[in-house]
Design a protein around this nucleic acid. Sequence first.
DNA 1: CTGTTAGCGCTTTCAA
DNA 2: TTGAAAGCGCTAACAG
Lengths: 345, 345
Amino acid sequence: MAASTLSEVARLAGVSLATASRVLNGSSRKPAEDIAERVREAADKLGYVPNAQAQALAKSSSGLIGLVVHDIADPYFSAIARGVQEAARQQNRMVLLASTTGTPADEKEAVAAFAARRADSIVIAGSRSVREEDKQGNAELAAELDRYCRNGGHVGVVGHPVVGATAAEGYHVVEVPNEELAAGLAEQLAASHNGAFLIIAGPEGLYTSDDRVRGFQRGLADAGRPAAEVIRTGFNRAGGFEAGKALAERIKGSSDRLCIFAVNDVMAIGVTAALRPEGVWIPRDATVAGFDDIETLRDFRPALSTVHLPLEDIGRLAAGDPDTAPISGTVKLRRSTETPVESQL
Amino acid sequence: MAASTLSEVARLAGVSLATASRVLNGSSRKPAEDIAERVREAADKLGYVPNAQAQALAKSSSGLIGLVVHDIADPYFSAIARGVQEAARQQNRMVLLASTTGTPADEKEAVAAFAARRADSIVIAGSRSVREEDKQGNAELAAELDRYCRNGGHVGVVGHPVVGATAAEGYHVVEVPNEELAAGLAEQLAASHNGAFLIIAGPEGLYTSDDRVRGFQRGLADAGRPAAEVIRTGFNRAGGFEAGKALAERIKGSSDRLCIFAVNDVMAIGVTAALRPEGVWIPRDATVAGFDDIETLRDFRPALSTVHLPLEDIGRLAAGDPDTAPISGTVKLRRSTETPVESQL
DNA sequence: CTGTTAGCGCTTTCAA
DNA sequence: TTGAAAGCGCTAACAG
C-alpha cells in the first residue's frame, strides 16, 4: 500500500507541503490559481491518493460510522443498513460493518473495534435482551459504549437502550413503538376475527419480541378478548417453522379458526411454510400475521398481514440524520388474515 | 474522540513508550511479566483504546476490506456481503461498505475512497456493463483500480472483469459460470416443456444478464429448440413486473403454454406478481424460472425454479478466502415450471 | 499568500 | 530486556 505522498507532490510542484495540502484537500484558504494548477498537475502525474488514515490522525475525526447488525443478509437488517448507508453518504462518511452472532459479548468486540478506529458514531441495530446469560455481556457492552461516548463518540441504538448503559451524552435511542403498533394490530384483527388468538414469540427476554407480545395482549384485552397463548421459539424463520410444525395437528383437530401472530415477518413465513405441507391453508384454516413488512416478502402469497416499519428511516435516524421524522408504523391487513367468503371455501 | 494515548499509559506505568507498545499490542518480543502487568493495569485504569488509525499509519496496513455493492438491501448483494463479512472476520479485518447507484462513476468514487483509507483489499460485487453510456465511467474505474493494484492493493471482482482493467498483479476475478448454468437450465426445462420459450432480460450490455441469455439460448439450441424471444427490461423486480404486465394479454390469447426465463429471481417474482392479478396462473397458464436462488424467496409459491448460486461463497472467495472452492451452481427445478397433471387443472 | 514547524498516536530500528 | 528517537502522511498554528 505504498502510494505517493503529499510531500512528493509538493516537491514535484516545487511548493511547500502546506500549500499542496491547501490545494488538494479543501482548506478555507485558497492559494493562487497558477500555483494550484501546478500542484494538481503534479498530483495527477503521481497518481496521488490522500491517505485518509493520516488525515484522520491529524484532525482526529475519521469520517467513519460503525454499524453493528446480527446478520447483514437478514432483510430486516439490510434494510436498516441501507438507511444508515444513505445517511453516511449525506454526511460524507463511510460505513464500517460488523456482523455479530447476536451476543452482547460479540457486540462489545465490535464496538471496541469501532472505537479503536475512532468512528465518529456507532449504530447498534441488534435487538437488546435481558436474559440471564447475556447479563455479563450486556454490562461489558454498556461499559464499552459508555467509554466511547465519554470520549466524544455518538451512539444510535435501534429500539431499546442497551441494558445498563447510563444515558450519557451522545447516546441516542431510536424509539420504535413496537408495543403500540402490536396493540393496534391486535385490535384490528379482533374486529374481524371471533376465534382464539395465539402468539408465536421469540425467546423471553428479547425486548423487541416481548414488547410486541405485550402490546398484542393489551390490544386483545382492549377489544374485550381473552389473552392469547404464547409459544416461545427462535426469533427467525426456523423458529417460526418449528412452531408451525408443532401446531399443525392441533389446528387440524379443532373446528375453531385460530389467528396466529408471529412477532416478525420471517417467523410468520416460517409458520405458513410449515403449515402448508400439512394441509393447513392460510387463511382458510387459520390466519397469520407478522411484523416488520419486509420488502422482499411483499410478493409472498397469501399476502401477509403485518405492521409496516420504515426500516430505512430507522437506519437513517440512528445514523444521526436530522431530517428524518420520528418513527411510526402502520398496520397492514392483507389476505393472510382475511375471513374467506363462503364461495371461496 | 479524545481517548487516552499510549504515552499516557506508559507514563502511568513508569515505562517507555516502546515497552508499553510491546506489551499492549502483540509484538514478537515480550517484556518481563511484572512490568507487563503494570502496563496492563495502567491501560485498564485509563480505559486505553489503541488508535487503529495511528497503528495503520505506522505499519501501513489498515486491516480494512472495502466492499462495493449496488444496494445492500438487495438480497443478492446482502448474501454476498455476508460472505465477505465472514472472510473479513477470519482475516481479522473489518468491512467498509459502499453502496453505489450502479454506475461505474459511482463505483470509481467508492474505490478511490477505499484506496484513500488504504483498504488492504477491495471487493466489487456490482455487475459490469459495456453500455455506451458507461464507457467513460468504466475507463475511469479501471484506471482507479489499476492504480490501487499497482500500489499493492488486492481486488476481487464478482462475475466479470471490470471493462478495460489490465490484468494487474493482485487483480482477481471470481468466475461465475452464468452461461453454462443458464444453458443447463434451458436443457432441463426443454426436457419437459414442449412449447415456446421467452426470456426476460436486463438491459443489453449488462454482462450478467447477457451471459445468462446467451447460455439459455445455447441450451435451447442444444436441445434442438428454436431460439427464444428476448424482452429487455430493468434488471430488478420492477422490470420483471413491467414485462409481466405487458405479457399478460398475449399469454391469455394463446393456447400455447409459454415458458418464461427471467434472468434473475427478483425479476421472476416480478413477472409472476404482475401475471397473477391478470388471472394468469403459474405454472397452469405459463411457467417461470429465475436465477440466483435467493434465500428469502425460497418460501414463495409456486416455488421458483432457478439456478442456485452459492452467494456467500462468492463473497468469501472475492474477499480472498483461500479455503473456499471455485464457484459452481446447481439447477433447481421446482413447482413454477412443473407441467400440471390433468387432475390438477 | 506561502512556507516552517510542531504535532496526531503508534511502530520499529538502533543503542544502551 | 528496555529506552530513545526517527518516522508513517497529513493538518494547523505560526511566522515570514
